[in-house]
Design a protein around this nucleic acid. Structure first.
Lengths: 247, 247
DNA sequence: CAGTGGTCTAGACCACATC
DNA sequence: ATGTGGTCTAGACCACTGT
């Protein structure tokens, strides 16, 4: 690796390990270092950044703690591919008819291109002239619908999804985003609330009208922290459980 | 500080920073180093543990990340007093009549000494012959009940609470535990579920029978990780919101 | 001013993975 | 055997806090 000069907009009064941390994140967000690939060795990075091993390791420690990198002794340091498309299973415990826990399948029911509400436009940091792709989707276990989802994407990032046939979307959205649109989801913020089942919920999820439903609203972002997906998921509260550790 | 010899049950093959981390936790759990007090300086600890500054700092970094210690440049390193008696407000957004968010008061309604269920006995790691103190409690805002709580404590740890008048328990339990029984809560695990309001819920919380209620079950532990309190809290789901960041 | 934690160096040796 | 990350050393100087 060549010697690195930090961007002129970086605050050079910051500790060097911070500057290095930010530079590594930038390279990953840029796609210079891709998920599941190894980044240069510690020795190379020390030379490139002109710091000692201790300082470099402090920067990498931060990124490992953030879940951006993983290290394996003897092998190298790798960009971690975030795999939380199935993270809703932190909230909902799903079991198939035979009692085993399983990953649901996904099915896109509808797609529209339209102007987003002001809330969604702001959440996705879009200009007011831009349009969204809206997808409605169900998740199924043993062909039984268990979750209803509404997904909003900025059209300019996901142009390819405006024409893809609905039956080619597959079960997982995030690998699709990466494959077809080069958009990699790296983090998300989720907000849980309890709602009452609407008529649509009752029909789709086969629960009683007005019964308790958990709603998970998610805003997913790329490595640079730019929001790329707005999603709402609703499921019967009966299957809900969530555990937190606090210190 | 004198030179430290590690306990014979410690696995000396572990990295030194791990051994040091565990020894510091033990001293805090023992009460040798109390909350809000400074621990010895880095230089002293290096001498005592016979390691270099880098190794010692790695141990302390772990404890800072765990929320056990806090460091202040120029002042020292301090044992952090965990303050999450009010952590339920991560889940429930409470507002008083005038719209300001506020801390509820607490009122203990009843106290019983009895044998715990097998689940609670196991959760509190108690012998089968031991008894529990069971408290029932409500949390109020503007004198309106908003949360119902059931608390189970091992009697042998909390003997003083068997005789304390109920109106002297105060609004917060954890400072009470520390003051009267020298039990310090340092961490907890909480599990959220959605239930239907029972008749007791409906009467106490003024919600409709069968309406959605959030239940938070908490097991609180001391610095050594020993469970000391089992608690269930129930409140109307209408005021519930929870946010998580995932990476 | 003295004492504290914050940053950083320039190495060393070890354990593990791969060839 | 070679290359990787994991652990550890024995210092240095800086920034901040208090007297």
């Amino acid at each position: 690796m060549d010697i690195v000069t930090f961007p002129t907009n970086a605050d050079l009064r910051l500790p060097r390990y911070q500057l290095i941390r930010d530079d590594i994140v930038r390279r990953i967000a840029d796609g210079q270092w891709a998920p599941e690939q190894a980044i240069p060795t510690e020795a190379d990075l020390c030379q490139a950044y002109e710091v000692s091993i201790g300082t470099l390791r402090k920067a990498i420690d931060l990124l490992v703690a953030d879940g951006v990198l993983t290290r394996t002794q003897g092998k190298g340091t790798f960009v971690r591919r975030p795999r939380f498309d199935s993270s809703l299973f932190r909230f909902f415990r799903f079991k198939s008819a035979d009692g085993k826990s399983v990953q649901p399948t996904g099915k896109v029911l509808g797609r529209t291109v339209l102007k987003p509400s002001e809330a969604i436009r702001a959440a996705l940091q879009m200009k007011s002239s831009e349009k969204c792709i809206r997808l409605s989707r169900v998740r199924l276990i043993d062909s039984e619908p268990v979750l209803r989802e509404e997904i909003w994407l900025a059209r300019h990032r996901f142009e390819a999804l405006t024409t893809l046939p609905l039956d080619e979307f597959g079960d997982l959205m995030y690998p699709l985003y990466e494959r077809t649109c080069r958009q990699i989801v790296a983090s998300a913020t989720e907000t849980l609330t309890v709602e009452q089942a609407t008529e649509e919920d009752a029909a789709a999820l086969r629960v009683d009208l007005g019964s308790a439903v958990i709603q998970v609203q998610r805003i997913a972002a790329d490595f640079a922290g730019t929001p790329i997906e707005w999603r709402t998921t609703r499921g019967a509260a009966a299957g809900f459980q969530y555990q937190v550790d606090i210190r």
